[in-house]
């Protein structure tokens, strides 16, 4: 297990390195100049040149890359091209909000999708099974931004049960913090719940036909035992696969949802940075998202191995 972790983390090094190269040149290929954009149409070419020089934008691209890359090892992501503030603390400040939204969303996806899918699969053809499929289609085809707006309209504006947005750190007021996370997390994850439910349903239907489940009743095991230790226990495994696979979509979806719910996370800052061509900020934020992605995936794989003895790490 420890060896596995070390190996997995070693693999991350070339992966993340390639990612920094890709990110850097990709973002610089986007047309538009950050300084010219910041100063507006009234600035003089001299002023633009001076600021470009101050920010190091007149250096060759490879040297700009090298400065940023070398800085990563010192935990220095550079300074913002727009306001000259160090990027590192800005980015770090945004991580808790994003992480909280991601995890709450994941929790909601599983809490809604898994029981529905399992019950539908276990009681094939029952009412719950019959309504799952159309509901799933509805959920899958509902865009997150539209649902988010609708949720705000109903639960925040009309009913006033939840605030329309804003984030309070968990450490400050856990209950209020979670209350505020609920709507954005729901809007973000609701598309994935039906997807999960369908997959869990399919897995459960499949399990019921497995010889070991049939034989369990042939050995006279209690129906309750068969449900818990034979069906449920094995239906959990595909959930992990889905979570690992859909995490990317979840992180990407935050760009819109954070905007909608005034959520001070990585996604919203990313939009601001991209609009202003703040190269260093955008590079660093995407890198952070990528690191979160690979780390959560690693955690999912480790969890999978601990639940399924056939998976060797």
């Amino acid at each position: 297990m420890l060896g596995y972790l070390v190996r997995r983390i070693l693999v991350l090094i070339p992966l993340l390195f390639s990612l920094t190269v890709l990110l850097f040149f990709y973002i610089h290929a986007v047309p538009g100049d950050p300084i010219a954009g910041m100063l507006g149409p009234d600035s003089t070419p001299e002023l633009i040149a001076r600021l470009r020089h101050e920010r190091g934008l007149d250096l060759p691209l490879w040297e700009q890359y090298w400065r940023w890359f070398a800085g990563l090892f010192r935990g220095d992501l550079g300074i913002s091209l727009i306001n000259g503030a160090p990027v590192t603390p800005i980015v770090i400040n945004r991580i808790p909000a994003t992480l909280q939204l991601t995890l709450c969303s994941l929790f909601l996806i599983v809490a809604i999708g898994f029981p529905l899918g399992f019950l539908a699969g276990k009681h094939q053809g029952s009412w719950i099974d019959r309504i799952l499929s159309p509901t799933a289609l509805l959920g899958l085809s509902t865009p997150a931004f539209w649902l988010g707006t609708l949720l705000i309209l109903i639960f925040a504006v009309r009913l006033g049960w939840f605030p329309a947005g804003g984030y309070i750190p968990f450490s400050e007021d856990p209950i209020e913090s979670l209350r505020r996370t609920l709507l954005p997390a729901f809007a973000l994850g609701i598309n994935l719940s039906p997807l999960l439910a369908r997959l869990v349903r399919a897995a459960t239907v499949e399990l019921k036909r497995e010889p070991f489940v049939i034989q369990a009743s042939g050995r006279g095991l209690k129906p309750n035992t068969i449900t818990r230790r034979y069906l449920l226990r094995n239906a959990v495994l595909p959930v992990l696969v889905i979570v690992g696979m859909q995490l990317g979509g979840l992180l990407g979806g935050q760009v819109i949802i954070e905007q909608l719910f005034s959520w001070p996370g990585v996604g919203r800052l990313l939009v601001e940075g991209a609009v202003q061509r703040d190269y260093l900020l955008v590079q660093s934020l995407i890198l952070v998202v990528a690191v979160i992605y690979v780390l959560v995936n690693l955690a999912v794989d480790v969890l999978h191995a601990s639940l399924d003895p056939r998976v060797k790490l």
């Binding site: 034989q215 050995r219 094995n234 495994l237």
Partner: peptide
């Protein structure tokens, strides 16, 4: 009554 079949592995819960 007990039933024993050819593919013993398939008749056992893989995760227990």
């Amino acid at each position: 009554l007990a039933l024993i079949v050819q593919d013993a592995l398939a008749t056992m819960n893989p995760v227990i």
